[in-house]
Amino acid sequence: MKNPYRTQKIAFFFLFLATLLIVIPVGLIVVVIIQKGFPAINWQFLSDIPRQGMRAGGIFPAIIGTIYLVTGAIIFALPIGLLAAIYLSEYSKDNLLTRLIKLAIVNLAGVPSVVYGLFGLALFVVFFKFGASIVSGSLTLGIMILPVIITTSREALESVPYSFREVSLSLGASKWQTIRHIVLPNAIPGILTGTILGLGRAAGETAPILFTVAAFYLPQLPHSIFDQAMALPYHLYVISTQVPNVDEKIRYGTAFVLLALVLFMNLVAIIIRYKFRKKKKW
């Protein structure tokens, strides 16, 4: 029989190795993008329109397009997601319907992003005749981030102690008053975290916007929500695969801006969560 402690040593070494195999590439990816992308960033790159078939100039329209899309998505998804979370946390009973809703949320979260793209194309672009536009793209992204918002908001609501609800009800508050004045205010940091995570997800996705909004090359800003728009992730895809001879600097620069945007949102979410945990009063 082998020495169990030697076995343990070997096993732990491999577990550590597995961890390194994830951590090191992640670190490398981030470092490489920062190293090669950061020097490309200057005011002109951020504020100029793309020029010479995207081989020069900046990425301003793509940044603006992404901001429009993300804003639209959140305007759509936050109210629905929050109310759905309230339903699950405060109203639902332990029955088949609730089970179905939870299953539906799990499935929404698992639907491949390109299928969202198809769905957006069929429903918003073709059926509602919105065309490829910011509205279509925003709504598609909105439905896609709904599960993120519902799940995190629900966790935030459920982490508010049950006793607060009892106290409020015992004072003669109605159920809605209790939710509105006691539960919601105490769940806001968690809801905010979920919202920002949803924003980050929406900002980084490409497949859902491919056929619903994204413009290959549109060197101007959209005039209305029924216009097409450029978007950062799609722009990165285009200049990396569809346009030959784009300066590496522009590609890395675009990747850097997109990564920075998404990671910044995640960082904000993590900070809010951390501060909230520290400050928690109960």
Partner: peptide
């Protein structure tokens, strides 16, 4: 009914509000 029949719980359970707002809440 619950306005007329008030309740004080086993553990002190202030709401996460100021002292004033705890009383003013109801």
């Amino acid at each position: 009914l619950r306005r007329k029949v008030g309740m004080v719980f086993a553990l002190p359970l202030p709401l996460p509000l100021s002292i004033f707002d705890n009383v003013a809440y109801g």
